Simulated scan of single mutants.
Amino acid sequence: MAKRNVFYSFHFDKDVFRVQQIRNMGVLVGDDPVSPNTWEEIKRTEQGVEDWINENLKRKTCLVVLVGEDTANRKWVKYEIKRACELGIPVVGVRIHNVKCVNTGYGKKGPDPFAGLDLKWTDGTTYSPTVYNPDPDGAYKDINENLASWIETAILEVK
């Protein structure tokens, strides 16, 4: 299976350590992290954040929403999901609360980030991305073994 070029969407403050574990699995080519100095410049304005998201989504084959406790409530996560649909980029959700964080342990299951969003493709058809729930007794292993196929499934669903 070829490596896919994906954009990871997540709540930084709560889930960055869990996300780094997933990004380091080496299964996929992901969005390159932004250096702290660059991010400080980007986030000075909402337009700066939108421009960064828009530019980085253009080259992606899938948006992977890594769902933690508060992910569904994040403004920029919602924007990334809606924008991916507008661009025709497949979207998939993966719950990560059962991936252990070295600082906080395990998280709490958060709400579905796609619930309540009116997601449509450019042709007007409704879109409802899948949210995968990895095995709570081996979430890291389950994600490592299945993330690539979950992404492929999302891509095939939109073709």
Rank of each mutant, 00 (worst) to 15 (best):
G105Q: 02
G105S: 06
G105A: 08
Y106W: 06
Y106L: 15
G107M: 02
G107L: 00
G107P: 05
G107F: 05
G107I: 01
K108Y: 13
K108T: 13
K108S: 15
K109D: 04
K109G: 00
G110V: 13
P111A: 15
D112E: 08
D112K: 10
P113R: 12
P113H: 13
P113C: 05
F114V: 06
F114W: 11
A115L: 13
G116M: 10
L117S: 10
L117M: 12
L117N: 12
L117K: 11
D118M: 07
D118L: 11
L119Q: 14
L119D: 14
L119P: 13
K120Q: 12
T122P: 02
T122V: 02
T122H: 04
T122A: 09
T122G: 05
D123A: 01
T126E: 14
T126N: 11
Y127G: 04
Y127H: 05
S128I: 11
S128C: 04
P129W: 06
P129N: 04
P129Q: 03
P129S: 02
P129G: 00
P129L: 03
T130D: 02
T130I: 07
T130Y: 00
V131A: 09
N133G: 02
N133K: 02
N133I: 00
P134Y: 00
P134H: 08
D135A: 06
P136W: 05
P136H: 06
P136D: 05
D137I: 03
D137V: 02
G138I: 02
G138D: 13
G138W: 05
A139M: 14
A139N: 14
A139T: 12
Y140M: 10
Y140V: 03
K141S: 12
D142I: 04
I143W: 09
I143T: 14
N144T: 10
E145A: 12
N146L: 03
N146D: 07
L147D: 03
A148E: 14
S149A: 13
S149F: 07
S149K: 14
S149C: 08
W150L: 09
W150G: 11
W150K: 11
W150A: 12
I151G: 01
